[in-house]
Design a protein around this nucleic acid. Structure first.
Lengths: 205, 205, 205, 205
DNA sequence: CGGTAAGCGAGACGGTACGTCGTGTCTTTCG
DNA sequence: CGAAAGACACGACGTACCGTCTCGCTTACCG
């Protein structure tokens, strides 16, 4: 009878409350207000409980991101059949979202969490950007299969360029011009991917 | 004129010592060791002196970057006449530098400094990446003038893509494959810039 | 009942250590060395713990005095049956003790603590001198009961005079002449200034 | 002789302003507000000027007291011919003055200044209380000469008792009962504790 | 009358201590 | 035996004064 549940079981309620509190504090007050004490207090949870489940602030943020508590808005790209349009729309949407203060707060907080921990940094960042990267590559791969893109296009590198630019622009430029910014990136990107005949990579207008 | 010198003039020695100490601590111990007290102690300076000159840690790092105390290795691109070669070499060099632990520590510290201050973030980041961006655009502009690149190429967007990718890869990937990584990025970039006939953008077999 | 014990109880060990450290620093280095940081360090205690228990330095000193951690040497007067002898001996003893550097350091520190806080001053002083005052009045009262002193003698006023003189002499005179000083005070106390016939010293009806 | 006047003479205006500022700060805000910087600022004087003239805060207070900038109200006792009345009136007046908040602030500040400096303490205190003591002894001596007091009365000891009691009562008791308090002290002083027959209070020859 | 020397207000300097806040660990009681 | 509560040792924060040190500017005496 040794394998039996002893003592009080872990409270999944506490677990959820911590993740929710983390979201709340991160989007509202930035990374500065995201202290372990504030998380515990906001969640109505003992500090020890937080430390029992997560080794660091970065770990909490990481799980909050992965578990969907943080609205990262990582959505698959549309598949209209035209990879150019789909990518442009997706990129415009992402840039639009990044004008929202809570999104920039989140991204900045994430960056801070990554920067502060030598060990968790890479992991955290990859977990956060992973889904975006995955959706991007998936859609581009379809474009390749459909003959719209060169078969030997470096999809991974392209995804890195796109995501890196998104983050970089968010962190540096105060105001992002939603549509124009996307078009410029698209412009550079698509010719690089070897867009074939009949498709004009230039922007509308 | 009322704005004349009153009281003891500010010590440029103290000023320099703080910037030097900031570099030392940032590259050696990471952003965690970069406390105001450590900076003051390392510089042999009173804390008040630090606060008298800079309002925040981010501001110190920003000036340390700009003043050249931090070896950011932002160098102009070579001009061999072949923009492809020049960009590839430069990119390889940057990626190689970013494998150096002190460089990643610096970049991470910079990111942390940017993330911790809502106000200084954009400014700090732009100051740090500004020179890189400028050199990139300059060389690409020459390529345009020499007819190697499309006259309507979006140089700014290309620079954003490159720098964003550099930072992103540094923060996420533990190990960067110096040559291959650069080639992939080059591959995507150059066709996008409308590389003309006779120049092969593909990587070495 | 809502007022029940929650969380970790306060450490009486820390409490004691602070009082002991206060004594040590006060008697050895004077009030200047008695800083909150020094107390915490000497006691092996966090500063926060000190502030959690006491609102000010004066409060710590006050409790250290009351709790007997500070050797104030407030002892009852002997009862040989002769109030004159008992008072003279006690007074000589106190004056002798006050030639001890650590005692003067303590008294001076106490005075400094009292002076630095408008609110705690009176309380602190009274707590310190209270026992002395009490023992004095007690012995004098016995003298009255035994018919050695006038039944209408102002014992409180006499005690104030004695204690005030002790403090005053300690703070002003560098060197106190143990025996002679006591005798002079005794002389005045017991016989007064010897008001001559026809003059009534008592207060108006 | 080399000791002749060279350079700009010291500004008596600055000197006066410092003493006045010291008074102002000491009586208004207590000893806590009496910082060197506050004195210099209030006096409109450079800090160095203050340090050039006085080695310590206690020294400033001491001179402020002596120079009459501080209204210590040390006045001679009246000489109506009746030493009892004169002393009682004087004592009542002093106790009345000591109910004034600015007077207690001054006395407390003085005590603090004395307590904080091992070296200046005695000197400072004696300078402050000296005049009071002197006036007291003078009047008592007249009483002796006029045959109202015993020729062998210990006048110095009596003065110490009176002044000590005044200070002690001010520092400890929140409210001093002007008249009654004086009468009690007078009672003890003049008639003593009324030692009964057969007991000789005098000291050894 | 110009030179020289010291005092002047101002304020930055290297320090120390302040009182607060956050860290990660611990020790209670309660469920 | 987990979880809340919260005290613990520790260390960094940003501020206030300390006593010292330059600055540019008087204000005297001097040769």
């Amino acid at each position: 009878m040794s394998g039996q549940q002893r003592g009080r079981p872990r409270s999944s309620h506490a677990h959820q409350a911590v993740l929710t509190a983390t979201l709340e504090l991160l989007t509202s007050g930035g990374y500065q207000r995201l202290t372990m004490e504030a998380i515990a207090a906001e969640a109505g949870v003992g500090k020890q409980t937080v430390y029992r489940w997560w080794p660091s602030k970065a770990a909490i943020v990481a799980e909050a991101v992965l578990s969907g508590h943080l609205a990262t808005d990582a959505s698959p790209l549309a598949e209209t059949g035209d990879v150019l349009t789909d990518l442009r729309d997706w990129l415009s949407g992402q840039l639009a979202r990044l004008t929202d203060p809570s999104s920039t707060a989140l991204l900045r907080g994430l960056t801070a969490a990554a920067a502060e921990s030598d060990t968790d940094a890479a992991k955290l960042y990859e977990q956060f950007t992973g889904p975006f990267r995955q959706y991007l590559v998936q859609r581009l791969a379809i474009g390749v299969r459909q003959g719209q893109l060169r078969p030997d296009a470096r999809l991974d590198a392209a995804a890195d360029l796109v995501i890196g630019a998104l983050i970089y622009r968010t962190l540096t430029h105060g105001n992002l011009s939603g549509q124009g910014g996307a078009d410029d990136l698209i412009e550079v990107l698509f010719a690089g991917l070897g867009l074939r005949a009949g498709v004009t990579p230039t922007s509308p207008g």
